[in-house]
Nucleic acid binder design. Structure first.
Lengths: 195, 195
DNA sequence: CAAGTATCTCAACACCTGTAGAGTTCTTGT
DNA sequence: ACAAGAACTCTACAGGTGTTGAGATACTTG
């Protein structure tokens, strides 16, 4: 492999290089999962030597973690939802989470795919769900077993993403997200407010 | 690694050896997914030389496929369900699929985990869902958009398995399956019979 | 009972992986 | 202007991967 890349430090801001690596990492991890994504491929995507990836992030695992630190304030999302009328909670949550999770390029989706075979990633998804839904979600919910029903909400939304983006079930795949939200939202709503 | 296993053909029925390999493959694929499961580990589990695995199945992919051929008659399951009163469809489907998918040792679960990063496995899950639910499921369902709603049923059940067995959401993890079925069944029922 | 074939182990191959160390160029502080 | 350090590439290593070919043993068929 001929690289003809000039040796030594590059002119300009190193942070852009770092960000390029992180972006490439997100893409590769998202498309192939943790194991199949190789540092060499990530480096190639970022137009960088593989050793530089290690130089910046010490190890593949740490790169994965760094690439998936979520720039999201968990409280704010649910606060925004809570400000709307309770009858719309189901729709809000559904469209918000589907929109976020179901974008194959997004860090969240990448995490989800990786979680299948990687306990680190699974823990991160668990943490994400915990801080964005389980922890702050109880105000949204009424009726018995709130925690269980919140987890069922998460389950359903995750299941839809898996079925649509990973398994590729035909109907889910072809319909625009809005159609799906329309059918699912009442079900989520029902979970939130008990029978 | 010292094997001290006698060289040459073994006495007895070769089919038992073959089955031992398949069983080991199911375990390994189920626990680690397609990539992390190594032929060497599978061979070790089956107390067999790695080359024998290749001899029997030609390639890792073919082994995977062979290990997950489902000894299940798709029509029979749904026929049994259809014989019961329609008001119980939701509960039947829920407990049947959760019971089958959610057992971490089962071929179906193994398939599901592998599907995250493996298109072959994803296709197999898609096929399984198609032949057991989408294809023969329409008699169970009334109302508009039957296909979409059947896929949403599948999505939810898959999501529960993912959340429980892979992500390890606490409440779902600790509750016995029956509790979960009790809460989920009405929702599935609702999907089946429209609003 | 002999010959042929199916089942098996051993050793090794070619390849790919994450990562370390040495050397080169740029930037920063004085 | 210069030294110190940070950001980079190159080369290479050690270990693990699926897979192959040769040889050993058992079963099967005449």
């Amino acid at each position: 492999m001929v690289t003809d890349r000039p040796v030594g430090r590059r002119p300009g801001d190193p942070e852009t290089t770092r960000q390029a690596i992180l972006a490439a990492a997100r893409t590769q991890f998202g498309e192939r999962g943790f194991d199949r994504a190789t540092i060499r491929a990530i480096a190639a995507d970022a137009d960088v030597d593989p050793a530089l990836v290690i130089y910046h992030f010490r190890t593949k695992r740490e790169l994965f973690v760094a690439a998936h630190e979520l720039p999201v304030d968990p409280g704010a999302i649910l606060a925004a939802i809570a400000a709307m009328p309770p009858a719309t909670y189901g729709e809000q949550i559904t469209s918000m989470y589907l929109g976020r999770f179901a974008a194959p390029g997004s860090p969240t989706f990448s995490l989800l795919r990786a979680a299948a075979t990687n306990e680190d990633a699974a823990a991160m998804v668990r943490g994400f769900i915990h801080t964005t839904l389980l922890e702050h979600g109880t105000p949204l919910i009424t009726g018995p077993d709130p925690q269980l029903r919140l987890e069922l909400v998460a389950s359903h939304l995750i299941g839809i993403v898996v079925a649509r983006e990973i398994l590729g079930l035909p109907e889910l795949r072809e319909r625009p997200l809005q159609d799906i939200v329309a059918v699912v939202a009442p079900v989520i709503q029902r979970y939130l407010q008990g029978d």
